[in-house]
């Protein structure tokens, strides 16, 4: 057998490849060249299956996994620094990630809702006092979750959590339902 397209019988290697999973046709049944290729391809499939079987126990070492996660924890992407409070004496800012995380964790406490991304924007920047923030949160819902709860409960909970846990003032929260998860 050569690397060329054609076998000695005139047929191409490719033609055998394409039909290896189905029944051999009349020519292939009798042809020793096609037969040989067919046999080899089947053995290759067997080898591939065995290799996959052998690989199925291949996992990264625990210390490598730890290294990856530690790396992530010590190299956090913070997003923008968002001013949350201004006075002549000092301006206090929080990283967008910090505000997003508090919002996300609050949404997650409501059964049937999972937060995705949370974008923080500044609505007003008075010279004195709290800066007014707005949040845009993407959520996914379980099919039995009540979407009205976002307006009824979740919004207030988010505003309250950010005020209490961080000290920042959110005036608006808009939710976008991005997907419904069927478990």
């Amino acid at each position: 057998m050569t690397d060329d397209e054609s076998l000695e019988c005139g047929r191409t290697v490719e033609s055998v490849c394409e039909t290896v999973d189905s029944e051999p046709d009349a020519h292939q049944r009798d042809c020793p060249y096609c037969g040989e290729v067919r046999e080899r391809l089947k053995q290759l499939d067997r080898l591939a299956r065995e290799a996959k079987e052998a690989d199925s126990s291949l996992e990264i070492e625990p210390h490598v996994r730890r290294r990856i996660v530690d790396f992530a924890r010590s190299n956090l992407r913070r997003g923008a620094d968002i001013p949350v409070h201004r006075e002549p004496a000092a301006t206090v800012s929080f990283s967008e990630m910090l505000i997003a995380r508090t919002a996300r964790e609050t949404v997650d406490t409501f059964p049937g809702f999972t937060a995705r991304r949370c974008r923080v924007r500044t609505i007003a920047t008075p010279d004195h006092g709290h800066q007014i923030l707005g949040l845009s949160i993407g959520v996914v819902m379980a099919p039995d979750a009540v979407v009205e709860n976002l307006d009824r409960n979740v919004r207030d909970a988010v505003i309250d959590a950010v005020a209490r846990k961080l000290g920042a003032h959110v005036a608006e929260v808009d939710f976008t339902v991005e997907d419904v998860h069927y478990d």
Binding site: G79, A115, R117
Partner: peptide, 9 residues
């Protein structure tokens, strides 16, 4: 992926 993009480790 989206949560990770927001910094959720």
């Amino acid at each position: 992926v989206l949560r990770a993009q927001d910094g959720d480790v």
